[in-house]
Amino acid sequence: MDPLLLGQRVIAILETGLRTATYKLATLMALLEHCIENLPDRPDEMLKVPLSELAHRVLDVYWHQVRPFDGHELRQSTQPRARILIAANALRAASGRLAGSVYVARLRAPADYAKAINEVVLCLAQQPLHRLQRLPGSSTSDPFLYDDSFLHDHITRSTLREHDDAIELKPGVAYGLARLAGLLKPALEIMWVEDVRRMNKFLDAEVPDVAGHLFGRERTTLAAVREPFKEAFGPHCFYCGAHVSANNPIDHVLPWSLVGIDGLSNLVLACTPCNSDKSGALPAVRFVDQVLQRDRETLEQLAVALQWPTQHDRVAAAARGIYRGQPAGVLTWSGFKSVERLDISFPPPWIGS
């Protein structure tokens, strides 16, 4: 499917329907990330998406959002019982409120994690997945993303198992979604903030940054890796080599705005000028190559000490999907006040041929 047409159909479905919860938006965000990290070798290939993986990503989206905002718990559904948010809160309580991510929660409370994933899988199958492709007023879906004929409000776990606990994206959809992620994700975030404002009457123009609460990163959490990184790799900016200050930034090499990967393999020490200048830009390939070549044993030791996953394979997979989906010659950030055009005619191993 043509990526532009695909994007137009996705936005049309969302803009023309009354969203009674943010679940559709979360599901699409999770699909975007899954497609980036599992980019098919050929643009016209189908892609199977395990519902457990989709549930993990959806749970991760809500992980920080369920924290109180301005003294309130944000409603994200017009229904009296928000199943996914309840599951996220239960797992946070079981794993410790300071667990920085779902990955950490899975390590700390594996049984509670499995219970939460099971609940989210069933919720996704019974609610957003079989309504995501339906235009308002229509009693049937237009399955342009995946076959949803077996999904319905009362589907059981046994029926899901009969379908391999997965949905399968149609030919070209995975590649198209991965290529469109940079455009679709900001649009989804805008819709999400609008929905949350509509569902929470206390939110008005005078209320602090709700968008930052929903989609920003907790810098205080990232600060936990600062000193261990300085001891392991030296107190220098990953990008320019300058000596960093006492409270220097921690940067996501693959931008947080594109893929929300907090694993140690995607984090580096940065000086303030480089961090500010890079912002959400796509870095030059050599920076990704360098970060993936850092000593794995050292990172694993830090992961154990900090109870913080490295996610090396996930970073490599996301990098492959991002750069293979970019048009030739796109500008990338190559250092302070410097850019260069993307050239993967001689790709590093993580990109592939």
Results as ranks from 00 to 15, higher is better:
41 D>Q: 15
258 L>W: 02
89 N>V: 13
197 R>P: 01
220 T>S: 14
3 P>C: 10
181 A>N: 05
175 Y>K: 04
35 C>L: 05
288 V>L: 11
237 C>R: 04
110 P>G: 09
70 D>S: 15
317 A>G: 02
142 D>Y: 07
38 N>C: 10
247 N>Q: 13
73 E>R: 14
174 A>P: 00
18 L>F: 03
191 M>W: 13
262 D>N: 11
288 V>T: 12
10 V>N: 00
63 W>K: 07
278 K>M: 07
40 P>S: 05
285 V>W: 13
66 V>Q: 12
16 T>V: 02
212 G>P: 03
202 F>P: 09
132 L>R: 01
269 L>R: 08
90 A>W: 10
84 I>S: 12
105 A>M: 07
6 L>D: 02
80 P>F: 00
298 T>S: 08
289 D>P: 06
320 R>S: 04
327 P>W: 03
351 I>N: 10
132 L>N: 00
254 L>R: 00
233 F>C: 00
325 G>Q: 06
248 N>M: 08
112 D>F: 14
233 F>W: 05
211 A>Q: 10
107 L>Q: 15
347 P>H: 06
327 P>S: 09
13 I>A: 15
162 E>K: 14
29 M>I: 08
344 I>V: 12
325 G>V: 04
309 P>A: 08
258 L>N: 01
120 V>K: 03
324 R>N: 02
246 A>H: 07
143 P>T: 05
151 L>P: 01
272 T>N: 13
157 R>I: 14
236 H>S: 12
142 D>R: 10
195 D>R: 15
292 L>G: 01
30 A>D: 06
131 R>G: 12
116 A>Y: 04
197 R>E: 12
180 L>N: 00
118 N>Y: 14
80 P>N: 02
132 L>M: 01
352 G>L: 06
292 L>V: 03
80 P>C: 01
276 S>R: 14
57 R>T: 14
337 K>G: 05
108 R>G: 07
72 H>M: 13
191 M>A: 11
15 E>W: 00
300 E>L: 09
251 D>L: 05
215 F>D: 01
307 Q>Y: 06
234 G>T: 06
293 Q>C: 13
265 S>I: 00
290 Q>P: 02
152 H>M: 03
31 L>G: 10
215 F>Q: 04
93 A>D: 11
294 R>H: 14
206 E>D: 15
109 A>Q: 03
153 D>Q: 14
51 L>Q: 12
111 A>P: 00
65 Q>P: 02
145 L>G: 03
6 L>M: 11
83 R>A: 13
106 R>F: 07
339 V>I: 11
307 Q>K: 13
266 N>G: 05
131 R>W: 12
352 G>H: 07
288 V>E: 06
184 L>W: 04
283 P>V: 11
302 L>A: 06
275 N>E: 02
96 G>N: 11
257 S>A: 11
63 W>H: 10
52 S>R: 15
98 L>W: 09
248 N>H: 12
62 Y>N: 10
63 W>M: 10
228 P>Q: 06
143 P>Q: 08
130 H>P: 00
116 A>S: 10
347 P>A: 09
236 H>E: 08
107 L>F: 12
220 T>E: 11
143 P>G: 05
335 G>S: 09
268 V>E: 08
252 H>A: 03
